[in-house]
Design a protein around this nucleic acid. Structure first.
Length: 117
DNA sequence: AGTTTGACTCCCT
DNA sequence: TAGGGAGCCAAAC
């Protein structure tokens, strides 16, 4: 898979994140088939064109550890119904996007190539 | 062409 | 749950 394709997949997945749910960089990378490319996912989103309507604020790091990257997005997430811990860690245990039930045919990803769970 | 940096993740404490 | 360190890849310098 080339880099352009990787970016494309990242954008597609990001756009498919339902309202009130969050997702992680690593999960996306894993979903595409490159679990080690977690950082690239972040970079892909960093130059993601705004006209693409990417809900990048729904993307957080693996465990909701530190801030998602910008603490500003935390407030946006709260508006969507995402709950946070007192310190600011996103409660992704509840709001993590269950992609296994959401189906991935819309983005044209082969479940066989991706090693989820 | 080598070094630094970043919207990361995993492991351990 | 929180915090620090090592590993990771690609782009920027």
């Amino acid at each position: 898979m080339d880099r352009a394709q990787f970016y494309k997949e990242v954008y597609s997945i990001t756009k498919e994140i339902p309202y009130g749910n969050v997702f992680t960089y690593g999960k996306i990378a894993q979903l595409i088939g490159n679990p080690q490319y977690s950082r690239m996912v972040g970079q892909a989103l960093s130059h993601a064109p705004k006209e693409e309507d990417l809900p990048c604020h729904r993307i957080v790091n693996s465990q909701g550890r530190l801030v998602p990257s910008w603490q500003k997005q935390k407030e946006l997430l709260e508006k969507e119904g995402i709950t946070f811990k007192r310190n600011g860690c996103v409660n992704m245990s509840k709001h993590l996007w269950d992609i296994t039930g959401s189906l991935t045919s819309t983005i044209g990803i082969s479940p066989t190539s991706a090693t989820w769970q």
